[in-house]
């Protein structure tokens, strides 16, 4: 079973103070730590699990700057077969449709049963790539997969709905599956894997310009300050006292 896994390099912004570049078009990411998008890491693991069960090859594909090679190498170290990094000249103007177009163009020449993507990227939160790709390739898709029972040419997949409910579909290959976080336990690369990865091929697609951009970024800005919490300051002892007073006043303890 051959898989393609689309992976994205994203910054960890959970506890960082964010700045925007001078043109107000993109994040000033000089001081941020980057890694593979969380859901994509689960997607990669799902491909690796299927590879262990059915054999076959895994191709990693990433659209982004040359630093994406780091996440591709890590995927190769975990067991993927090869990588493709696409770096178009207009990288920072792409919308999900244009990104899917770039990937679809490269995928055409490959043989695959499944294409995996994460269900959503932690940076833009769109959640569009996988299902857009399925539309471009005219193959079926399941998004937000939380359980996959695969066979040679079809799979039974549970996809996540709201409120803890799931719905189950039977889908024939080739297909696109977008993976929700928590579906498996992503492995770490072994030292042996990291050594082997250095010999694996990454193909670079450069000096091209992405076509079909439909949505444009007008500007990025910090959200206007709205209502905000009353912040208690002081050492833990002092803030605890204030919280205690609140709880007592409101009859919560």
């Amino acid at each position: 079973m051959n898989s393609i896994v689309c992976i994205k390099r994203v910054p960890d912004t959970t506890s960082a103070t964010l700045k925007i570049d001078a043109e107000n078009r993109k994040l000033d990411d000089g001081n941020l730590v980057f890694s593979i998008n969380e859901a994509d890491n689960y997607a990669l693991e799902e491909a690796l699990l299927l590879q262990e069960e059915f054999g076959g090859e895994i191709t990693l594909i990433s659209v982004g700057p040359k630093e994406c090679d780091d996440i591709i190498r890590m995927g190769l170290a975990k067991g993927a077969t090869r990588g493709i990094r696409i770096t178009p000249d207009n990288l920072y103007k792409l919308d999900p449709y244009a990104i899917a177009n770039l990937i679809a163009e490269q995928i055409k020449e490959l043989e695959y049963d499944l294409i995996f993507t994460g269900c959503m990227a932690n940076d833009d939160n769109f959640g569009q790539l996988g299902v857009t790709l399925a539309g471009l390739l005219n193959i079926p898709h399941i998004s937000l997969a939380v359980k996959i029972q695969a066979n040679e040419d079809y799979a039974i997949i549970d996809r996540e709905l709201e409120g803890g409910l799931m719905e189950q579909f039977n889908i024939k290959f080739p297909a696109v599956i977008t993976i929700q976080t928590g579906i498996n336990e992503p492995r770490y690369a072994s030292i042996f894997g990291i050594k082997r990865a250095s010999k694996k091929e990454i193909r670079f697609v450069e000096n091209i310009s992405a076509q079909g951009i439909k949505v444009h970024t007008e500007k990025m800005y910090l959200p206007p300050p709205g209502d905000t919490a009353e912040i208690f300051t002081g050492n833990p002892e002092e803030t605890a006292e204030k919280v205690y007073e609140i709880l007592k006043t409101k009859g919560l303890i």
């Binding site: 959640g127 299902v131 857009t132 996540e160 709905l161 709201e162 977008t178 439909k214």
Partner: peptide
């Protein structure tokens, strides 16, 4: 922006060749 929409809107946009912004 629901689980149903995430499963349909992007491929519908491809079929119709329309711009789409999600979320």
């Amino acid at each position: 922006q629901t689980s149903y929409t995430m499963d349909i809107a992007p491929s519908l946009a491809v079929q119709l060749d329309l711009p789409i912004v999600m979320g």
